[in-house]
Design a binder for these strands. Structure first.
Lengths: 239, 239
DNA sequence: TAATCAGTTATTGTTAACAATCTGATATTC
DNA sequence: GAATATCAGATTGTTAACAATAACTGATTA
């Protein structure tokens, strides 16, 4: 995952690298909502100047992944239950619109691409790589958005996806409850192939409601600490 | 419009002040797409440090009102025709969803508030204050979003509204073509009051398509210059 | 014990100086 | 004349030092 290596063998993080790392850590539920993000600490972890961290935090705050309060720094955002519901309600609206646009324009190539994606997702799940399977099940939604061809809808869906892990509680049900169900994705693809807008939307709505049903208010935060943050860095340091 | 006055009688702009000023200038078509935004120039105009301008430009870039290119600074964004179409298509989706949510929850107080808004807009237009009437006709849409009670839908609508003036060409048709038609707003309010989702959506869609029909590719940009920017500052300096 | 206060440290915010890069003009070569 | 090279000025990007604020600690008092 990105990052340059310089002459002395040290990892070199760019601004975008740092941003993506933190985003990914949120997506993977490694960084819990409410976690304090100290500037010097992060700067040391990534081996970059404080100014760069500062810019990244501002950017993250703008996409509402981080909350900044004047003179008291930044924390991983902690959206209310209400905001979580709004997020999901909006997601249903956006994904419906994406399906409509996609069905209106999808050609044979698009359909093949979607099918391939679906198969890959299924295989990966069968192979037991559940982390990668989760990533792929998210990518499925992203790809539909991309193929639909409306850049603004795509942008909003990605925004919602980034914010969602802050709302959902990690690992509430059994393991396979925590990802998009492959057979639901399959049903959606079927409907798209048949250009059946109504069915596609209905199945997608069910699918999303099913995910949404897992929103709860966190019972007792395990407060991710320094160590978690460190894992964030050591993760991809295969230099 | 905001901004503190200090002991020596000088206007004091905060970061948010500067941000809002520039946003408003875009909304009012004073800052044309493609206009170069030099850091020192802006810093001088507002009487603030360059660092502050820098932060504001980054924030504006994040909401896609400004485009930043490394080492060559910031310009007012210049969305393509395609992006403009996507923006409007998405707006129809969002406003439909807002109407649905609003009709589901609106009580008597909400309806009164909407009606009052409508009347104010009508009066202002009759009084000939077309600049304020334009502002109010935008506020009408914003208020529906706010009353609908979904903060994410509201956020996205505001985002679209901010970006829209970069897409529409200013003053193409006659003067009263450039604002939301009051009678269309009236029809929407009627449908809301009757809780007629279908009609409300249909009228809203017509209304938006009517606005959208005015998108054109700019013929020959009048290139707003320093002077326009200056007007931005002197505008509200009634100290 | 709980509350208040003062002083210390940790953390964030700002600034001015410097570095890097781009822009545009003029000069040079073919 | 067209293409290229060179330089000065303008503009953006980075940094390290400093300032302002918050968070913490422990002592003091009621």
């Amino acid at each position: 995952m990105s990052a340059q290596i310089d002459i002395s063998g040290n990892t070199r993080f760019s601004e975008d690298d740092v941003l993506r790392r933190i985003e990914q850590a949120v997506l993977d539920h490694r960084l819990a909502p409410g976690t304090k993000l100290k500037e010097v600490q992060l700067a040391n972890l990534f081996g970059v100047k404080r100014g760069l961290i500062r810019k990244v935090l501002t950017r993250l705050a703008h996409s509402r992944l981080v909350e900044q309060t004047p003179n008291r720094g930044a924390r991983v955002a902690k959206p209310s239950v209400k905001e979580g519901q709004d997020l999901f309600a909006t997601r249903r609206v956006i994904e419906s619109a994406i399906l409509e646009a996609l069905i209106a324009k999808a050609d044979e190539t698009d359909l093949q691409q979607i099918t391939k994606m679906l198969e890959l997702e299924h295989e990966t799940y069968l192979q037991g790589d559940s982390e990668r399977a989760l990533k792929l099940s998210i990518d499925f939604h992203r790809q539909l958005a991309q193929l639909a061809g409306n850049s603004v809808l795509e942008e909003y869906l990605n925004d919602i996806i980034r914010r969602t892990p802050l709302v959902i509680l990690a690992h509430l049900g059994a393991d396979d409850e925590n990802r998009c169900r492959n057979q639901e994705h399959e049903a959606i693809v079927d409907a798209i192939a048949k250009r059946d807008i109504k069915t596609a939307k209905r199945v997608m709505n069910q699918h999303l409601l099913h995910i949404e049903s897992k929103i709860r208010h966190k019972p007792d935060e395990p407060k991710s600490d320094l160590a978690t943050l460190l894992r964030l860095q050591t993760d991809g340091d295969a230099a």
